[in-house]
Lab assay of single mutants.
Amino acid sequence: MSIQHFRVALIPFFAAFCLPVFAHPETLVKVKDAEDQLGARVGYIELDLNSGKILESFRPEERFPMMSTFKVLLCGAVLSRVDAGQEQLGRRIHYSQNDLVEYSPVTEKHLTDGMTVRELCSAAITMSDNTAANLLLTTIGGPKELTAFLHNMGDHVTRLDRWEPELNEAIPNDERDTTMPAAMATTLRKLLTGELLTLASRQQLIDWMEADKVAGPLLRSALPAGWFIADKSGASERGSRGIIAALGPDGKPSRIVVIYTTGSQATMDERNRQIAEIGASLIKHW
């Protein structure tokens, strides 16, 4: 067993022997300050990975656009099909120029040879490739089937209704393509630590998230040396920005953090900075 597999395998073990964890309200002060700075709603939740206990939250049951954070859930659904023998990570999918949508930095380079399901999930999570996400959605039956998968997991909140890039419209009070911080955190925890996926698939999912290449300005920018993070960011219209992450010190994840914001007129750089500052406060008061 590799060191990485050993780390994931021990998560349920540590759950039975973990020391108590305590929240620090200073982080919530920073979350509220971020709302003021951005002139927008901010949703935040911090969940103990082992016990599932909510350590701190702000607007945990308000809806926010999922943006590209849905791609982790999508690849979780794909992996569940792999575990059930209904899909193969090595299966090659061919597509055409007509399938390409905006922001497809990986898939646009493989029009001649296609990409495997594994490569598409990697592109969707690590590079947030939109065409990769659409091709993967097709393999499971579309957005409604992803919503059904989540319902079967016990998540009756999170929903995907449209494809890339339309799902990023982020219209106020529109429940399409939205989640709540509490629902997303719970669902992510189930995918990473529960029995829904095999150990190999849980490890694959967290490996893809750990290799995320487009979330550098967010929580990763505040991460001390030696800390672990596996994450997925998202951005969409109407000043929306978000990130879902499993992180912790000593090279292993111990908490789930979900941050969403929407309705801001601030620049992308400012939205990134506010999320990074929330992360810095979280780490300082860990």
Rank of each mutant, 00 (worst) to 15 (best):
I3Y: 14
Q4R: 12
H5R: 07
H5G: 08
R7G: 12
A9T: 15
L10W: 08
I11V: 14
I11C: 09
I11A: 15
I11D: 10
F13L: 09
F13C: 12
F14S: 08
A15C: 15
A16G: 15
C18L: 06
C18S: 11
L19A: 15
L19C: 15
L19P: 09
P20H: 15
P20I: 01
V21N: 02
V21L: 06
V21T: 14
F22G: 14
H24P: 09
H24G: 07
H24L: 03
H24W: 03
P25Y: 06
V29W: 05
V29E: 15
V29R: 11
V31A: 04
K32W: 09
K32R: 08
K32S: 07
D33R: 14
A34V: 09
D36C: 14
G39S: 08
R41W: 03
R41A: 06
V42M: 07
V42S: 00
Y44C: 00
E46A: 08
E46V: 09
L47R: 02
L49V: 13
L49R: 01
K53W: 06
K53C: 10
K53V: 14
I54Y: 10
I54V: 15
L55V: 09
L55K: 03
E56D: 09
E56V: 04
S57G: 07
F58L: 07
R59H: 08
P60Y: 04
P60R: 09
R63C: 04
P65L: 03
P65T: 03
P65G: 02
M66I: 13
M67R: 15
F70V: 06
F70N: 01
V72C: 02
L73G: 03
L74Q: 00
L74M: 07
A77L: 09
V78G: 00
L79D: 00
S80H: 15
S80I: 08
S80Y: 12
S80E: 14
R81Q: 10
R81E: 05
R81A: 07
V82G: 03
V82H: 05
D83T: 01
A84G: 12
Q86R: 12
E87G: 02
E87T: 06
Q88N: 14
Q88Y: 12
L89A: 05
L89Q: 03
G90S: 14
G90R: 10
R92S: 10
I93L: 12
Y95W: 12
Y95S: 07
S96F: 12
S96H: 12
S96R: 13
S96D: 15
S96E: 15
D99Y: 06
D99A: 10
D99N: 11
V101A: 08
Y103D: 07
S104G: 02
S104K: 00
P105A: 03
V106C: 13
V106G: 03
E108G: 12
E108D: 11
K109E: 14
K109S: 11
L111I: 15
T112W: 12
T112A: 14
D113V: 08
M115C: 05
R118W: 15
R118G: 15
R118K: 12
L120V: 01
S122R: 13
A123V: 04
I125M: 10
T126Y: 09
T126N: 03
T126S: 10
M127K: 07
M127I: 10
D129V: 00
A132E: 00
L135A: 04
T139A: 11
G142E: 15
P143T: 12
K144L: 14
K144Q: 06
E145I: 09
E145V: 11
E145H: 13
E145T: 10
L146W: 01
L146V: 08
L146M: 12
F149G: 01
F149T: 06
L150T: 05
L150Y: 03
H151Y: 05
N152R: 11
M153T: 09
G154Q: 03
G154R: 02
D155G: 00
H156D: 14
V157D: 10
V157L: 07
T158S: 09
T158A: 02
T158L: 00
R159T: 05
L160T: 06
R162A: 04
R162W: 01
R162E: 02
W163S: 06
W163L: 08
P165S: 04
E166C: 12
L167T: 04
N168G: 09
E169S: 14
E169N: 12
E169T: 15
A170P: 01
A170R: 07
I171R: 13
P172E: 13
P172K: 07
N173A: 07
N173H: 14
N173T: 10
D174F: 02
D174P: 01
D174K: 01
E175I: 13
R176E: 04
D177A: 01
T178A: 01
T178S: 10
T178Y: 01
T179E: 00
M180N: 15
A182C: 13
A182D: 07
A182S: 15
A183Y: 11
A183P: 03
M184G: 00
T187I: 03
T187P: 00
L188G: 01
R189C: 10
R189Q: 12
R189A: 10
R189G: 07
K190T: 12
K190V: 15
L191K: 00
L191I: 11
L192W: 05
T193I: 15
T193S: 13
T193A: 13
G194V: 04
T198G: 11
T198H: 13
T198K: 12
T198M: 08
A200S: 14
S201V: 09
S201Y: 08
S201R: 06
R202A: 12
R202W: 13
Q203N: 15
L205V: 03
I206N: 04
I206C: 09
D207C: 13
D207T: 15
W208C: 13
E210G: 06
A211S: 09
A211D: 13
A211F: 04
A211C: 09
K213D: 04
K213T: 08
K213H: 09
V214M: 11
V214T: 07
V214E: 04
A215Q: 03
A215D: 02
G216S: 09
G216T: 07
P217R: 07
L218D: 02
L218P: 02
L218E: 02
L218K: 01
R220F: 01
R220C: 12
S221Q: 11
S221R: 11
A222N: 12
A222K: 13
A222F: 05
L223S: 02
L223M: 13
P224L: 01
A225N: 15
A225D: 14
G226I: 00
F228N: 01
I229Y: 01
D231N: 02
D231E: 03
K232V: 00
K232G: 00
K232E: 08
S233C: 04
A235Q: 06
A235V: 03
A235T: 04
E237D: 12
E237Q: 14
R238K: 13
G239E: 01
S240T: 06
S240D: 14
R241D: 02
R241M: 05
R241Y: 02
I243V: 10
I243A: 00
I243P: 01
I244R: 00
A246P: 00
P249Q: 04
P249L: 02
P249D: 02
P249S: 03
G251E: 07
K252E: 10
K252P: 01
K252G: 06
P253M: 15
P253C: 07
S254Y: 07
R255V: 01
I259M: 04
I259Y: 01
T262L: 08
T262N: 10
G263E: 05
G263D: 03
G263W: 14
S264D: 11
S264I: 03
A266R: 11
A266V: 08
A266L: 08
T267C: 09
T267G: 12
T267P: 15
T267N: 12
M268A: 06
M268I: 09
D269N: 11
R271G: 07
R271A: 13
N272M: 01
Q274L: 12
I275T: 00
A276L: 07
A276T: 07
I278T: 00
S281R: 08
K284G: 08
